[in-house]
């Protein structure tokens, strides 16, 4: 293995310099949570309204608790959104610094996990686990691609041997199975 890599720790600098015009979203992380709660409330309400109720479930039935959770989620979601919108600019700047996120790293890691989830049945455990390991390691700032691939492959292979061989857990071999 060549040691031409530059570094592993100090990579992935913060994308932008701190002084910049605050965007609408800065220091308002609750907007996302509030939005998700409202979406969940809507989903629960829609599910309740269209539910095919079997038999007699009593006073509350299968839907009663669902209505309660939907109402709770809607109220909390709205309160969170209001709190986020009414926050003072100074407090928002402080929160924005705390919430600063390396989106490229998050994206890469998520891509690795999503690719694994989508392709495991077709491509197989060995390849997808190695790729996912490499994607996460790279996302977390490790720039030595070759070493990440090697470590990931060794780990994936060990897991396959231990779990398929000894515990009888079936991991798909995918494209490698045909070889």
């Amino acid at each position: 293995m060549s040691h031409t890599d530059l570094d592993s720790g100090s990579a992935a600098d913060p994308a932008e310099a701190p002084p910049r015009t605050p965007s609408f979203w800065d220091g308002r992380g609750e907007l996302v949570i509030g939005g998700l709660l409202l979406a969940m409330a809507g989903t629960l309400a829609a599910g309740n309204a269209g539910m095919d109720v079997i038999g007699d479930g009593g006073l509350l039935g299968p839907q009663g608790f669902g209505w309660f959770v939907a109402a709770l989620a809607a109220v909390i979601g709205l309160l969170l959104i209001v709190a986020a919108l009414r926050r003072s600019p100074g407090r928002r700047a402080a929160l924005a610094a705390e919430e600063r996120t390396n989106w490229r790293a998050v994206g890469l890691v998520l891509l690795g996990i999503a690719a694994f989830s989508g392709l495991i049945d077709i491509v197989g455990w060995l390849l997808m686990a190695t790729l996912m390991f490499t994607a996460v390691a790279t996302g977390l700032g490790n720039r030595n691609l070759l070493r990440s691939l090697t470590v990931g492959f060794v780990m994936a292979a060990t897991v396959q041997i231990v779990f398929s061989g000894m515990l009888g857990l079936n991991l798909p071999s995918g494209v490698l199975g045909g070889l």
Partner: peptide
Amino acid sequence: LAFGLGLALVGTDQSTGTARF
């Protein structure tokens, strides 16, 4: 808490057998 309660609701209702969410 609301997220957790919502997730727990998914599935077949134990007392009536109604499919929920």
